[in-house]
């Protein structure tokens, strides 16, 4: 698939999705409001012609107890969705998401779960970026503007989660919805292209079908969302919560 044909497919699909959802919006308007909640997936909170707003705070909840060490469905899904290769050289190849094994040296207890960009409320990568290429959308998704990233890598020094990768060599066959290029920095986008069209991130979707349903995506600002209810009901943790960054990725049973 060439880049051009890919872009066209992408645009056509977006157009179809827009028309589909616009139509769905009219339908639900004429029905009862309760139906709306049932009809839309978690991410559908705004029409595509409206700007992103701070009303939403997209986040992930990862249930560590459900995640098994041998399963890497989320990693494979992310690599395939966003076009980065798995199993390459960890020194120089990108990894937007990886399975982390954490072992308590005293008890020997081990757990395994995915770690990706934590989409912090106060992201250090955004603070330090000289050109503002690292930025946080109003809905909490932290991204890199590939047009203004100069490849200084200061964000990689500042990120406490090892979440970012630098592209060390020329790339071909990038996905049209996941721009990547030599000499720039990248990380998990929370599948922003999917979220914007009302879908869940690829890792969450794949974990539900091929994995153990350990990942949940949703709006942390919406008190009625499943993720918010779960975060309010059960004890969850953020990695390095002591740093005060308030990540949008939470872990349950950690």
């Amino acid at each position: 698939m060439t880049c051009t044909s890919g872009s066209k497919e992408f645009i056509d699909k977006s157009r179809r999705d827009f028309l589909k959802k616009a139509g769905a919006g009219v339908t639900t308007f004429t029905l009862a409001s309760g139906v709306t909640l049932m009809a839309y997936p978690q991410a559908q909170k705004r029409p595509l012609d409206e700007p992103v707003s701070a009303k939403n705070r997209w986040g992930l909840l990862i249930d560590v107890n459900k995640c098994t060490p041998e399963c890497d469905a989320c990693v494979t899904a992310c690599a395939s969705e966003n076009g980065w290769k798995q199993g390459g050289d960890p020194r120089v190849d990108a990894q937007w998401i990886r399975k982390l094994t954490v072992k308590n040296p005293k008890s020997g207890y081990e757990s395994s779960f995915p770690v990706m960009c934590q989409h912090c409320e106060n992201p250090p990568c955004v603070d330090v970026c000289p050109t503002g290429a690292s930025f946080k959308r109003l809905d909490g998704i932290v991204l890199v503007d590939k047009h203004t990233c100069i490849g200084c890598r200061y964000c990689m020094i500042a990120c406490p989660y090892n979440a970012r990768s630098f592209i060390h060599e020329p790339l071909t066959d990038q996905r049209p919805w996941a721009p990547r290029g030599k000499g720039t920095v990248e990380s998990c986008t929370l599948c922003v292209h999917r979220v914007d069209r009302g879908d869940e991130p690829a890792c969450v979707e794949k974990c539900a079908t091929d994995g153990n349903g350990a990942l949940m995506f949703g709006d942390l600002n919406d008190p009625d969302s499943e993720i918010s209810i779960r975060v309010a009901t059960y004890a969850t943790k953020q990695i390095r919560a002591d740093l005060g960054l308030n990540p949008g990725v939470r872990y349950e049973n950690l």
Partner: peptide
């Protein structure tokens, strides 16, 4: 040594004023 030294003009015209790097420029 930048990943994109060709974007020097961006570095000199697009600033994030919270960045210590930008202050240093």
């Amino acid at each position: 040594d930048l990943g994109r030294p060709d974007r020097l003009l961006i570095a000199m015209t697009t600033y994030n004023f919270k960045s210590i790097f930008a202050w240093n420029i």
